[in-house]
Amino acid sequence: MSNGDLTGRNVVVTGAAGGIGAAIAARFAAEDRVVSLWDLDPRVHATAAALAAPRDGADSDDIDCSPTASVHSQEVDVSDADSVRRAFDQLTAAHGPADVLVHAAGVMVGGSALELDAADWARCLSVNATGTMLVTQRAAADMAAAGRGSIVVVSSNAAAAPRVGMAAYGAAKAAATAFTRSLALQVAPLGVRVNLVSPGSTDTAMLRDMFGGTPLDDDAETALLDGDPAVYRLGIPLRRIAAPADIAAAVHFLASDGARHITMHDLRVDGGATLDM
Protein backbone atom coordinates (compact mmCIF):
# COMPACT_ATOMS: atom_id res chain seq x y z
CA MET A 1 0.00 0.00 0.00
CA SER A 2 1.15 3.51 -0.69
CA ASN A 3 -0.38 4.84 2.50
CA GLY A 4 -0.18 2.76 5.66
CA ASP A 5 -2.78 4.58 7.72
CA LEU A 6 -5.83 3.14 5.96
CA THR A 7 -6.99 -0.37 5.20
CA GLY A 8 -6.50 0.11 1.46
CA ARG A 9 -6.36 2.56 -1.40
CA ASN A 10 -9.50 1.75 -3.42
CA VAL A 11 -12.35 3.75 -1.86
CA VAL A 12 -16.03 3.91 -2.84
CA VAL A 13 -18.31 6.65 -1.50
CA THR A 14 -22.05 6.50 -2.21
CA GLY A 15 -24.26 9.57 -2.04
CA ALA A 16 -21.26 11.57 -3.18
CA ALA A 17 -22.91 14.20 -5.40
CA GLY A 18 -23.02 16.70 -2.54
CA GLY A 19 -23.31 17.29 1.18
CA ILE A 20 -21.77 14.77 3.55
CA GLY A 21 -20.94 12.27 0.81
CA ALA A 22 -18.99 14.84 -1.20
CA ALA A 23 -17.08 15.93 1.92
CA ILE A 24 -16.17 12.31 2.64
CA ALA A 25 -14.97 11.80 -0.93
CA ALA A 26 -12.85 14.94 -0.64
CA ARG A 27 -11.26 13.67 2.56
CA PHE A 28 -10.15 10.43 0.93
CA ALA A 29 -9.12 12.12 -2.32
CA ALA A 30 -6.62 14.19 -0.32
CA GLU A 31 -4.53 11.02 -0.18
CA ASP A 32 -2.95 8.67 -2.70
CA ARG A 33 -6.15 6.78 -3.47
CA VAL A 34 -8.54 5.64 -6.13
CA VAL A 35 -11.81 7.28 -5.08
CA SER A 36 -15.06 6.36 -6.80
CA LEU A 37 -18.04 8.68 -6.28
CA TRP A 38 -21.43 7.00 -6.74
CA ASP A 39 -24.79 8.73 -6.78
CA LEU A 40 -28.08 8.57 -8.65
CA ASP A 41 -27.85 12.35 -9.07
CA PRO A 42 -25.94 13.13 -12.32
CA ARG A 43 -24.31 16.05 -10.53
CA VAL A 44 -21.92 13.45 -9.14
CA HIS A 45 -19.83 13.90 -12.29
CA ALA A 46 -19.43 17.63 -11.68
CA THR A 47 -18.56 16.93 -8.04
CA ALA A 48 -15.83 14.52 -9.08
CA ALA A 49 -14.47 16.94 -11.68
CA ALA A 50 -14.41 19.80 -9.17
CA LEU A 51 -12.73 17.60 -6.62
CA ALA A 52 -9.96 16.62 -9.00
CA ALA A 53 -9.37 20.19 -10.25
CA PRO A 54 -6.79 22.45 -8.55
CA ARG A 55 -8.45 25.02 -6.29
CA ASP A 56 -7.34 28.43 -5.10
CA GLY A 57 -8.77 30.22 -2.08
CA ALA A 58 -10.65 27.18 -0.82
CA ASP A 59 -12.79 27.41 2.29
CA SER A 60 -11.24 26.24 5.53
CA ASP A 61 -13.32 23.05 5.49
CA ASP A 62 -12.24 22.14 1.94
CA ILE A 63 -9.47 19.62 1.38
CA ASP A 64 -7.49 19.69 -1.84
CA CYS A 65 -7.27 16.52 -3.88
CA SER A 66 -3.88 14.82 -3.83
CA PRO A 67 -2.07 15.05 -7.18
CA THR A 68 -1.67 11.27 -7.00
CA ALA A 69 -5.33 10.52 -6.31
CA SER A 70 -7.53 9.07 -9.04
CA VAL A 71 -11.13 10.31 -8.87
CA HIS A 72 -14.00 8.67 -10.75
CA SER A 73 -17.78 9.06 -10.82
CA GLN A 74 -20.70 6.85 -11.71
CA GLU A 75 -24.49 7.12 -11.60
CA VAL A 76 -25.71 4.34 -9.32
CA ASP A 77 -29.16 3.67 -7.87
CA VAL A 78 -28.38 2.09 -4.50
CA SER A 79 -31.97 0.85 -4.16
CA ASP A 80 -31.72 -1.20 -7.36
CA ALA A 81 -29.92 -4.54 -7.10
CA ASP A 82 -28.91 -4.61 -10.78
CA SER A 83 -27.50 -1.08 -10.64
CA VAL A 84 -25.46 -1.94 -7.54
CA ARG A 85 -24.19 -5.19 -9.07
CA ARG A 86 -23.11 -3.44 -12.28
CA ALA A 87 -21.33 -0.71 -10.35
CA PHE A 88 -19.32 -3.17 -8.27
CA ASP A 89 -18.53 -5.32 -11.31
CA GLN A 90 -17.28 -2.28 -13.22
CA LEU A 91 -15.27 -1.09 -10.23
CA THR A 92 -13.61 -4.49 -9.86
CA ALA A 93 -12.80 -4.72 -13.56
CA ALA A 94 -11.27 -1.24 -13.64
CA HIS A 95 -9.57 -0.89 -10.24
CA GLY A 96 -10.05 -4.10 -8.30
CA PRO A 97 -12.48 -4.62 -5.40
CA ALA A 98 -13.09 -1.86 -2.87
CA ASP A 99 -10.81 -1.76 0.18
CA VAL A 100 -12.96 0.90 1.84
CA LEU A 101 -16.67 1.53 1.33
CA VAL A 102 -18.45 4.54 2.77
CA HIS A 103 -22.18 4.32 2.26
CA ALA A 104 -23.61 7.82 2.65
CA ALA A 105 -26.52 7.68 0.20
CA GLY A 106 -29.90 8.53 1.67
CA VAL A 107 -33.09 10.53 1.32
CA MET A 108 -35.19 12.50 3.78
CA VAL A 109 -38.94 11.92 3.88
CA GLY A 110 -40.79 14.03 6.44
CA GLY A 111 -44.37 14.29 7.55
CA SER A 112 -46.73 13.25 10.30
CA ALA A 113 -46.77 9.58 11.23
CA LEU A 114 -50.59 9.83 11.11
CA GLU A 115 -50.62 11.06 7.52
CA LEU A 116 -47.60 9.33 6.00
CA ASP A 117 -48.14 8.30 2.39
CA ALA A 118 -47.39 4.66 1.57
CA ALA A 119 -45.37 5.66 -1.49
CA ASP A 120 -43.18 8.00 0.56
CA TRP A 121 -42.72 5.28 3.18
CA ALA A 122 -41.67 2.79 0.50
CA ARG A 123 -39.22 5.23 -1.09
CA CYS A 124 -37.62 6.07 2.25
CA LEU A 125 -37.20 2.39 3.15
CA SER A 126 -36.01 1.52 -0.35
CA VAL A 127 -33.18 4.04 -0.44
CA ASN A 128 -32.16 4.26 3.21
CA ALA A 129 -32.63 0.64 4.32
CA THR A 130 -32.65 -1.59 1.24
CA GLY A 131 -29.92 0.52 -0.33
CA THR A 132 -27.74 -0.02 2.73
CA MET A 133 -28.29 -3.77 2.55
CA LEU A 134 -27.55 -4.04 -1.18
CA VAL A 135 -24.39 -1.94 -1.14
CA THR A 136 -22.81 -3.18 2.08
CA GLN A 137 -23.70 -6.82 1.42
CA ARG A 138 -21.78 -6.86 -1.86
CA ALA A 139 -18.85 -4.88 -0.51
CA ALA A 140 -18.60 -7.09 2.56
CA ALA A 141 -18.64 -10.25 0.44
CA ASP A 142 -15.79 -8.95 -1.72
CA MET A 143 -13.81 -7.86 1.32
CA ALA A 144 -14.41 -11.15 3.13
CA ALA A 145 -13.02 -12.99 0.12
CA ALA A 146 -9.90 -10.84 0.36
CA GLY A 147 -9.70 -11.21 4.15
CA ARG A 148 -9.62 -7.47 4.78
CA GLY A 149 -11.60 -4.26 4.36
CA SER A 150 -13.49 -1.50 6.10
CA ILE A 151 -17.08 -0.34 5.70
CA VAL A 152 -18.58 2.78 7.25
CA VAL A 153 -22.31 3.47 6.95
CA VAL A 154 -23.59 7.00 7.49
CA SER A 155 -26.84 6.59 9.41
CA SER A 156 -28.49 9.23 11.63
CA ASN A 157 -29.09 9.97 15.28
CA ALA A 158 -32.78 9.85 14.30
CA ALA A 159 -32.38 6.06 14.22
CA ALA A 160 -32.13 6.09 18.02
CA ALA A 161 -34.13 9.16 19.07
CA PRO A 162 -37.75 9.51 17.87
CA ARG A 163 -38.50 12.74 16.01
CA VAL A 164 -41.91 14.26 15.40
CA GLY A 165 -42.39 14.52 11.64
CA MET A 166 -39.57 12.07 10.84
CA ALA A 167 -41.21 8.66 11.37
CA ALA A 168 -40.31 7.18 7.99
CA TYR A 169 -36.77 8.54 8.03
CA GLY A 170 -36.10 7.37 11.57
CA ALA A 171 -37.55 3.93 10.89
CA ALA A 172 -35.50 3.51 7.72
CA LYS A 173 -32.29 4.62 9.41
CA ALA A 174 -32.99 2.34 12.37
CA ALA A 175 -33.37 -0.59 9.96
CA ALA A 176 -30.14 0.38 8.21
CA THR A 177 -28.34 0.61 11.54
CA ALA A 178 -29.59 -2.77 12.72
CA PHE A 179 -28.63 -4.48 9.47
CA THR A 180 -25.17 -2.86 9.50
CA ARG A 181 -24.40 -4.07 13.01
CA SER A 182 -25.57 -7.60 12.21
CA LEU A 183 -23.44 -7.63 9.07
CA ALA A 184 -20.49 -6.39 11.13
CA LEU A 185 -20.88 -9.26 13.55
CA GLN A 186 -20.94 -11.83 10.75
CA VAL A 187 -17.88 -10.61 8.86
CA ALA A 188 -15.68 -9.65 11.81
CA PRO A 189 -14.02 -13.10 11.93
CA LEU A 190 -13.27 -12.72 8.22
CA GLY A 191 -11.13 -9.62 8.71
CA VAL A 192 -13.74 -7.00 7.74
CA ARG A 193 -14.65 -4.11 10.01
CA VAL A 194 -18.09 -2.48 9.69
CA ASN A 195 -18.99 0.67 11.62
CA LEU A 196 -21.56 3.46 11.65
CA VAL A 197 -21.40 7.22 11.90
CA SER A 198 -24.68 8.80 12.98
CA PRO A 199 -24.79 12.56 12.39
CA GLY A 200 -27.22 15.01 13.88
CA SER A 201 -28.10 18.38 12.33
CA THR A 202 -25.52 19.06 9.61
CA ASP A 203 -25.43 22.06 7.29
CA THR A 204 -26.41 20.32 4.06
CA ALA A 205 -29.11 20.75 1.43
CA MET A 206 -31.15 18.10 3.24
CA LEU A 207 -31.22 20.19 6.42
CA ARG A 208 -31.82 23.43 4.56
CA ASP A 209 -34.81 21.91 2.77
CA MET A 210 -36.46 21.59 6.19
CA PHE A 211 -36.20 25.40 6.48
CA GLY A 212 -37.33 26.39 3.01
CA GLY A 213 -34.22 25.42 1.03
CA THR A 214 -32.18 28.51 1.80
CA PRO A 215 -29.03 28.89 3.93
CA LEU A 216 -29.86 28.73 7.62
CA ASP A 217 -30.60 32.15 9.09
CA ASP A 218 -30.10 33.09 12.74
CA ASP A 219 -33.65 32.08 13.69
CA ALA A 220 -33.34 28.63 12.11
CA GLU A 221 -29.95 28.04 13.69
CA THR A 222 -31.21 29.12 17.11
CA ALA A 223 -34.19 26.79 16.77
CA LEU A 224 -31.88 23.86 16.08
CA LEU A 225 -29.49 24.71 18.88
CA ASP A 226 -32.23 25.29 21.45
CA GLY A 227 -34.45 22.36 20.54
CA ASP A 228 -38.22 22.43 20.87
CA PRO A 229 -39.93 21.02 23.97
CA ALA A 230 -43.30 21.20 22.18
CA VAL A 231 -42.20 18.37 19.88
CA TYR A 232 -39.83 16.72 22.38
CA ARG A 233 -36.76 17.68 20.41
CA LEU A 234 -33.50 18.13 22.32
CA GLY A 235 -31.10 20.93 21.46
CA ILE A 236 -27.38 20.72 20.74
CA PRO A 237 -25.18 21.12 23.85
CA LEU A 238 -22.09 22.10 21.83
CA ARG A 239 -24.07 25.05 20.38
CA ARG A 240 -23.05 24.57 16.75
CA ILE A 241 -24.41 22.95 13.62
CA ALA A 242 -22.08 20.33 12.19
CA ALA A 243 -20.27 20.95 8.94
CA PRO A 244 -20.03 18.07 6.43
CA ALA A 245 -16.28 18.03 7.11
CA ASP A 246 -16.99 17.11 10.74
CA ILE A 247 -18.79 13.97 9.62
CA ALA A 248 -16.08 13.21 7.06
CA ALA A 249 -13.40 13.33 9.75
CA ALA A 250 -15.25 10.77 11.87
CA VAL A 251 -15.79 8.50 8.87
CA HIS A 252 -12.14 8.75 7.89
CA PHE A 253 -11.03 7.72 11.37
CA LEU A 254 -13.31 4.67 11.52
CA ALA A 255 -12.13 3.56 8.08
CA SER A 256 -8.48 3.92 9.06
CA ASP A 257 -6.07 1.52 10.70
CA GLY A 258 -6.19 3.85 13.69
CA ALA A 259 -9.57 2.20 14.36
CA ARG A 260 -8.33 -1.32 13.59
CA HIS A 261 -9.84 -2.76 16.79
CA ILE A 262 -13.22 -1.04 16.36
CA THR A 263 -16.18 -2.73 14.70
CA MET A 264 -19.98 -2.68 15.17
CA HIS A 265 -19.57 0.81 16.67
CA ASP A 266 -22.12 3.59 16.15
CA LEU A 267 -20.33 6.93 16.48
CA ARG A 268 -22.70 9.84 17.14
CA VAL A 269 -21.48 13.11 15.62
CA ASP A 270 -24.27 15.40 16.79
CA GLY A 271 -22.82 17.83 19.33
CA GLY A 272 -24.40 15.86 22.16
CA ALA A 273 -27.95 16.14 20.81
CA THR A 274 -28.89 12.58 21.67
CA LEU A 275 -27.16 12.71 25.07
CA ASP A 276 -26.54 9.15 26.30
CA MET A 277 -28.80 7.26 23.86
Rank of each mutant, 00 (worst) to 15 (best):
V127T: 13
V127S: 07
D56Q: 10
L91T: 09
V44T: 10
A94Q: 00
A26I: 03
H95I: 00
L114Y: 07
V102M: 01
G106Y: 09
D59P: 11
A94V: 01
L116G: 14
V78I: 13
H72V: 10
A53T: 15
G96P: 01
A23E: 08
S36R: 00
A29R: 02
V78T: 10
D64G: 09
V78G: 08
E31H: 04
D89L: 10
S60L: 10
P54S: 14
A122F: 09
W121S: 05
L91C: 08
V107M: 05
A119H: 11
G131I: 01
L116H: 14
T68F: 07
E31L: 03
S70Y: 01
A122N: 12
D117T: 08
A105Y: 00
P67W: 07
A26F: 05
I63C: 12
S126R: 12
A52Y: 10
I24Y: 13
P67N: 03
A98Y: 06
A122I: 12
R33F: 04
A53W: 11
H103T: 05
D32H: 12
P42Q: 09
A69N: 02
P97D: 00
D59W: 11
T92N: 07
S70Q: 00
A26M: 02
L40E: 02
V107D: 01
M133T: 03
D56L: 06
T47E: 14
R33Q: 02
G96A: 01
D120K: 14
V34F: 01
A87E: 03
Q90Y: 09
A48P: 11
H95R: 01
R33S: 00
A29Y: 06
S60D: 13
A105E: 02
Q74W: 06
A87H: 01
H95A: 00
D56E: 13
R43S: 15
A58P: 09
V109D: 04
F28I: 03
L91F: 06
R85I: 02
R43F: 12
V100D: 07
V107Y: 01
A26N: 01
A23P: 06
A98R: 04
E115Y: 07
L101I: 05
V102L: 04
E115T: 12
D41N: 14
C65W: 09
H45A: 14
A81H: 03
S66I: 09
A113Y: 08
P97Q: 03
E115W: 09
H45C: 14
F88A: 11
E115Q: 12
L116Q: 15
S60P: 07
A113H: 09
A81N: 05
L91Y: 05
P54H: 15
S126M: 08
M108T: 03
R123M: 07
A122P: 12
G96I: 00
E75D: 15
A53N: 11
V100L: 08
D77P: 14
E75R: 15
D117C: 08
W38I: 03
V84I: 07
R123C: 05
V76K: 12
A104H: 12
L40T: 07
N128G: 00
S79Y: 00
D120Q: 11
L114G: 04
A48G: 13
A58K: 08
S112C: 03
I63A: 11
A48W: 13
A129C: 10
H95Y: 02
P42N: 08
S73A: 15
L125D: 00
A30D: 01
G110H: 06
D117Y: 14
G111E: 08
A48N: 11
G111A: 09
